[in-house]
Amino acid sequence: MHLKIHSQFQSFKPTLIEYIENFNTSGTVFVDGERNKIKLFELGNMTINIKSFKVPNIINRVAYQFFRKSKAKRSFEFATRLLENGIGTPQPIAYFEKRTFLGFGNSYYVSEHLAVDLTYRELVEIPDYPDAENILRQFVQFSFRLHEKGIEFLDHSPGNTLIKKRENGQYEFYLVDLNRMNFHDHLNFETRMKNLSHLTPKKDMVVLMSNEYAKLYSAKTESEIMQSMWFYTDDFQKKFQQKIKFKKRFLFRK
């Protein structure tokens, strides 16, 4: 087993190894997905979560063994880079990779478990969510800072931003599900708008987001920002709905 533990958590190495070795029979299930599973554990005086990534197919086993970084390793490294850039994400603690004679096997990403008030998803799904406009505008400011630092978060979707309420109407934002991310010297306008296209199907939210983004981005007018952001949002939603219809037809035929 290959592992890397953050320098601040080296003293917990035996405990972390024990959690990984007994992952299937210990911990509290937090997310039980088709592809990945997240469990909660106690480490010192903090709660941590351990994300177990699904064993890849045979082709990716070879790729992760020799050519590509695993999702767990990427998550750890990207979280570290985000924090170095002043972008919120749960504290990275460790990653583990298991290898077998068949190639790459399980991998695990360990991070701090944050207690938060909501995710971006609640703003989409709950009508008249308290203080929604203020939260959304601050989220756009957060996303703009991300863009200004050249960070392209490829999974910038409703469930992947955790939001914590602070005093005086202020909110903090934390990115999760980090294994797909690009770091650039500069993000062009098109990439910025595409990066915000997976967040909501609601045009009124896009109008508000465009208004706030225009206050921060002087290279384009509010009208240009709105037109582009809605174009990519609408395009994504149409493709998403087509994918759902295809899956339903396929399952029905089976």
Results as ranks from 00 to 15, higher is better:
217 Y>W: 07
220 K>Y: 11
192 R>A: 09
136 L>R: 10
231 F>G: 03
189 F>P: 05
194 K>P: 09
102 L>A: 14
171 Y>Q: 12
109 Y>H: 14
211 N>C: 09
181 M>C: 04
75 S>V: 01
29 V>Q: 12
69 K>W: 06
63 A>G: 06
99 R>E: 10
233 T>E: 03
128 D>N: 15
174 Y>P: 04
96 F>I: 01
94 A>N: 09
116 V>G: 02
31 V>T: 12
185 D>M: 00
151 I>K: 11
27 G>D: 07
125 E>L: 07
236 F>E: 00
123 L>N: 06
62 V>A: 14
73 K>I: 00
37 K>M: 12
51 K>D: 08
68 R>Y: 14
254 K>T: 03
208 L>P: 03
161 T>K: 07
145 R>K: 15
143 S>N: 14
132 A>W: 15
67 F>H: 11
215 K>H: 08
56 P>W: 03
143 S>C: 13
146 L>V: 11
173 F>H: 08
214 A>K: 05
31 V>F: 15
33 G>N: 10
192 R>L: 09
25 T>E: 12
117 D>L: 14
52 S>I: 00
76 F>I: 00
51 K>V: 02
103 G>D: 07
134 N>R: 12
184 H>E: 06
135 I>Y: 13
46 M>W: 06
156 H>E: 09
237 Q>R: 03
133 E>V: 02
32 D>M: 03
76 F>T: 01
150 G>T: 13
239 K>L: 05
182 N>F: 05
234 D>S: 13
111 S>G: 09
